[in-house]
Amino acid sequence: MTAVVYIILEIIGYIFISIGTFFLLLASIGLIRMPDVYNRMQTATKATTLGALSVLVGIGLIDLWWLPKSLILAIFIVLTAPIGASALARASYKHGVKLWKGSVVDKYKDEKEED
């Protein structure tokens, strides 16, 4: 009985890992297809975070003893990845990287002029 449960968990784990790899692949395609730094950062942050989370949860399900560890790692990724993305986006804005020509609005420019 327990053996069956372990096999099912292992299959679910591999499904999670496949989904995660798919999103990681998507993130890299996004890096190539998007027109400017900011849009690239968008696809890269979201898809890599969920991709990595999904892979970690998958590993945790394949070997249940790893689950607490992989969950802690997942929490750290969720905490740090968005901060890194904001820091990079802001740094590139301050460095003068222009928005894509199709952009419709830039409220941040006003803020810089007020400073």
Binding site: L26, A27, I29, G102
Partner: peptide, 26 residues
Amino acid sequence: AMIKANFDVAYRVLSPKKPIKPGIVR
């Protein structure tokens, strides 16, 4: 919300028309 975000990313990355209209709002 995160899962929705990823399908949103998938749609924007894979769609040949590139349905984006970026900007910075406050």
